[in-house]
Amino acid sequence: MDETIKKSLQKTACQVRMGVLTGTFHAKSGHPGGSLSIADLLTYLYCAKMHVDPKHPDMPDRDRLVLSKGHTAPALYAILAERGFFDKKELESLRHIGAMLQGHPCIHTPGVDMSSGSLGQGISAACGMALAGKVKSASYHVYTILGDGEIEEGQVWEAAMFAAHYGLDNLTAIVDNNGLQIDGKITEVCSPEPIDEKFRAFGWHVIVVNDAHDFDQIEAAFNEAETITGKPVAIIQKSVKGKGVSFMENQVGWHGSAPNAEQYEQAMNELKAALAELEA
């Protein structure tokens, strides 16, 4: 990847992480851990990959993204705000009464392509959008992001079977493999591993990204995905839950709790320092 582009993406990802913290801090609730683990992925998709227009969020030929792991909405909201779908100030009223930004994604928010959050459902809607693209010979691509805990839902595998059966090569599912779910390590709760072999067995082309926070690796994965025809692509990205905030990294406790004022300040200082380093 071009170094200038990479640096720009890294800076935006840093802003997205700050948006995640700002949103969850002001909400006094929410899910920072899994939001931080997909910050780089969302930044790459919305800034370097997807055909979207913040001025025309509903344009028919746009690429679509369904955040199947909908509890990580703070990251989606942060990148949409970065791209100008709505004002960044909205992040401060996340989850408040009367606010536009709901606890989980709502289709009526500009830039949000599907309501989601009840786990396992987003991927099915993504399949429907991809199927509609096939029926209408549309050029758009559909992306859906799943949690590694989320794929314990049976509906995910119904959808996986469907996507392969109908050859939905206009669909890419990304599994955010941060290894943690609410009750602990995914391998200890009720293991969905091996994830790559499962998708392969269901007829998908599988790409494993060993570091979900390295834009070169992310780009390589999506470049490979683009060459695949006749079947859907699953990208299994090995990520770090809480990535970018020292005390949140790999800590299951940060799955669904918000930082207090002191923690928020520390986290923001860390991210500001990281941003300053990128800008130096």
Binding site: S124, A125, C127, L131, A132, K136, E158
Partner: peptide
């Protein structure tokens, strides 16, 4: 696979 079917229907409708 009725659960997926309802979700696929939702996605189809979301895409017009």
């Amino acid at each position: 696979a009725e659960e997926n079917m309802m979700g696929v229907a939702a996605g189809l409708a979301a895409a017009g």
